[in-house]
């Protein structure tokens, strides 16, 4: 709904509300502003009230901002960043404003880059995985438990898993003096040995988890926090 053609007092009224809702996520303030805009447009279409009367009935921008605080005081709502925001809140084609940083962090590119950096980032000078973890936690399309899973189950990504799998072998070869190596095939500094199946699982886990994060990230789309 474009109201650029609206009366100057309506524009300044809406701008004043927008300024008072600045602390909210863009989607939330957009939803509230859309409701107020619709209210004004519909009331004008029905007639019988001047613009000034309609704005007076709505209350001051401060009243609306105070109503927001009041509606949050019961503890059942508030600035809930974790709840999804269905796309049904805006009509097809309606512009949805997002802050530039939020737009990047909820973008498909962000999701794909994060899901590549998590399993394979450690190949990049060993620190790429850390960028993957940062991307995961800054991203807006994953739930908290998924972020924890992505961090805990992919320590170092595939290289980390590889290290874990070959560590016992390297330790076995380092034993004994030249010519008198003591072969202790079971020896493992971690205190347990990994059968081949377990090695396969350890290697596959980061990729499976990254694939899961990629799929849910892409399915949720840019509007889902």
């Amino acid at each position: 709904m474009n109201h650029d053609h609206a009366a100057p007092e309506v524009r300044s009224y809406l701008a004043a509300i927008q300024a008072r809702l600045a602390q909210l996520p863009a989607e939330q303030s957009g939803e509230i502003l859309f409701g107020v805009r619709e209210h004004i447009a519909e009331a004008l279409e029905r007639g019988g009230q001047s613009t000034a009367e309609i704005l007076a009935g709505l209350g001051s921008p401060d009243d609306i901002a105070a109503g927001l605080a009041g509606s949050d005081m019961d503890g059942s709502g508030g600035h809930d960043f974790a709840k999804p925001f269905p796309s049904a809140q805006f009509p097809p084609g309606a512009p949805q404003k997002q802050l530039p940083a939020q737009r990047h962090q909820s973008s498909t590119l962000w999701v794909v880059a994060t899901c590549i950096l998590l399993p394979f980032g450690a190949f990049l000078a060993g620190i790429g995985w850390l960028f993957g973890v940062a991307g995961l936690w800054m991203g807006t399309r994953w739930k908290t438990w998924e972020k924890i899973m992505g961090t805990v189950l992919i320590p170092g990504g595939v290289p980390g898993a590889l290290l874990l799998a070959i560590l016992p072998v390297r330790q076995t070869l380092s034993f004994g003096s030249p010519g008198e190596e003591v072969i202790i095939s079971d020896y493992n500094p971690l205190g347990f040995s990994l059968p081949e199946l377990a090695i396969a699982v350890v290697l596959a886990l980061p990729i499976i988890v990254a694939l899961y994060l990629l799929i849910v990230g892409l399915v949720r789309g840019p509007k889902q926090p």
Binding site: E31, V36, I64, S71, F85
Partner: peptide, 20 residues
């Protein structure tokens, strides 16, 4: 008293799954 206060409330009710 102020009709405008309805819209933050409706937004919250929708976020909490009480209205659609």
């Amino acid at each position: 008293t102020s009709e405008g206060t309805l819209y933050p409330l409706l937004a919250r009710l929708r976020r909490n799954g009480l209205v659609e």
